[in-house]
């Protein structure tokens, strides 16, 4: 194991999959000559050439659709959105073409495509550039959605996504690109199955269910809670769809209390779905109502103080945990 950044882990995943399968190509804005807006594709043009690492004009709908068409005839495109906020321009291709083709064609055309890029609110980018898109995409049957929070998860989930025969969105955490973590050496194949949550910290009093940018937040809060004699277990969903119910249920059956903390907005969000499934399946295990911590239900303001107010934060999470623990 060695310590690398989240960005470097993604870069390794891309390079390894491009190397492994000649049908894989990477396409998007600034991915080649500029090395990626966030430098995730650094060095790939030099290594794989312009046929496999392809710059596009600013035409998200166009190149996302190009990827879907290429996937229909057997290529395995990796389509990078400079941010998932821009994928909204390509919503029709991602939601109406990629996942529907298999059903509409009676099983003749599966679409092995990966859509990826930074997702979720970053820092003072204003309303148009701060979208967390997981609940939008998880709502469409036929799509798979994963949200890695660590370098190792980022590498393993991206590699698995590229090999999946269905459309997969890898929603990278914009604020975590420079974060570091331990990952196996490059010659060891890291593959993390979609649909497996990961217990990032064991605990006995409360389950904090989180993903992507809220994982480091939950870890920090768990350390604070420890000082107050509250033992929090941290369940990192890693995949939103498929959703690992078993790991969630096991954790909540042990702690009997749950707080869901998500980077997304609250209405019809991931937390709502998780909450529904817990109460439906293990209602008797609960000692307190489930709490959710998410964004406030407003477009993201630019002002730093207001943005902080809108986002989930340590104070809100602490308060929610104490409420379910009646502490």
């Amino acid at each position: 194991m060695r310590e690398i950044t989240y960005r470097q882990a993604l870069n390794e995943a891309l390079a390894e999959e491009l190397e492994r399968d000649p049908n894989v190509f990477l396409m998007g804005e600034e991915v080649a000559e500029y090395h990626g807006a966030y430098k995730v594709s650094q060095g790939l043009l030099e290594r794989f050439g312009p046929k496999r690492v392809v710059d596009t004009p600013i035409s998200e709908n166009g190149f996302a659709g190009l990827g879907v068409g290429a996937a229909m005839v057997g290529l395995r495109p990796i389509i990078e959105f400079m941010t998932l906020s821009f994928s909204l321009v390509a919503f029709d291709q991602v939601v109406n073409n990629a996942p529907n083709m298999f059903m509409m064609s009676g099983g003749q055309f599966n679409i092995p495509i990966t859509f990826r890029g930074p997702n979720g609110p970053a820092h003072q980018l204003g309303a148009t550039h701060s979208h967390a898109t997981e609940s939008l995409y998880a709502n469409a049957p036929g799509l798979k959605v994963c949200t890695p929070a660590t370098p190792r998860d980022a590498k393993g989930l991206l590699k698995t996504a590229v090999r999946d025969d269905n459309p997969v969105l890898v929603l990278e955490a914009e604020l975590l690109y420079s974060s570091k973590g331990m990952v196996e050496p490059p010659d060891a194949e890291v593959l993390i199955p979609l649909g497996q949550a990961d217990v990032k910290r064991e605990g006995s009093d409360v389950s904090i269910i989180c993903y992507a940018q809220t994982v480091p937040l939950a870890i920090a809060v768990a350390a604070q809670l420890e000082e107050e004699d509250i033992s929090a277990e941290i369940v990192d969903l890693r995949s939103i769809k498929p959703l690992d119910e078993a790991t969630i249920f096991n954790s909540v059956s042990k702690t009997h209390r749950a707080v869901i903390v998500e980077q997304d907005r609250p209405f019809c969000g991931v937390g709502a779905e998780v909450c529904y499934r817990i109460q439906k399946n293990i209602f008797d295990q609960l000692d307190a109502p489930i709490m959710r911590v998410s964004q406030e239900d407003v477009p993201m303001p630019y002002n730093e103080r207001l943005e902080k107010f809108v986002l989930p934060n340590a104070d809100k999470l602490m308060a929610a945990v104490k409420k379910v623990c009646y502490a």
Binding site: L66, V68, G69, A70
Partner: peptide
Amino acid sequence: VPLAAGMAFA
């Protein structure tokens, strides 16, 4: 029409 572009790209 973008799908056609992708098929021809392939």
